[in-house]
Simulated scan of single mutants.
Amino acid sequence: MLDDTDRRILRHYQHAPAAALSDLAELAGVTANTCARRLERMEAQGVILGNRAVIDWRALGYEVEVSLRAQLDKTQPRAFDEFTAAAREVPEVIEIQTFLGRVDLRLYVIARDMVHYQHIYRSAILPLPHITDIEALMHMARIKADEALPL
């Protein structure tokens, strides 16, 4: 279990994971050694999964984002596995989610422009196996995109 000190460290760490250990420790009100030990323990326990670079794909020329909701042929026992394996191979599919309910999966797709998206859709998405229905939702605005947890 996490105590208040762990939560305080995580609260600051999630907002500045590249901060110097001494700065993080000072913000959390602990010594650098305590901070390092606790971060190591939380990593070993799987509380901290790692650090990653967050890249603005718009800065790389991708202007279109589309959420595709798909239904699969559930009479095929390997439909989910075969579909997700194939969808993972499409570089512009940056997220795949599965659901229970009317929608089976959601693919999050990025493209440079609408012409590029149309090419991806026709050449890489439509040929994916076991699709029985697909609906595109064009992204208009991101209102909130915060990965920080309320600690």
Rank of each mutant, 00 (worst) to 15 (best):
D3C: 05
R7E: 09
R7S: 04
I9G: 00
H12W: 05
A16C: 07
P17M: 02
P17F: 00
A18N: 10
D23S: 12
L24D: 01
L24I: 01
G29S: 03
N33W: 06
C35T: 09
R41Q: 15
Q45V: 15
G46P: 09
V47G: 05
L49T: 12
G50C: 05
N51D: 14
N51E: 13
A53T: 04
I55L: 03
A59H: 06
Y62R: 02
E63A: 11
S67C: 14
D73Y: 11
T75A: 13
P77G: 07
A79Q: 10
D81F: 06
E82V: 04
E89L: 09
P91Y: 00
Q97S: 12
F99A: 08
L100G: 11
L100P: 03
G101E: 03
R102I: 12
R102K: 11
D104K: 09
V109F: 00
I110G: 06
D113Q: 05
M114D: 10
V115S: 13
H116R: 02
Y117L: 08
Y117R: 01
Q118T: 10
Q118M: 08
Q118V: 08
Q118E: 14
I120V: 12
I120S: 01
Y121G: 03
Y121Q: 07
R122V: 13
R122Q: 15
A124G: 07
A124P: 11
P127Q: 02
D133P: 05
E135R: 14
E135M: 12
A136D: 08
L137H: 14
M138V: 12
M138Q: 09
A141N: 13
R142M: 15
R142G: 14
R142F: 08
A145R: 08
D146Q: 09
L151F: 06
L151T: 05
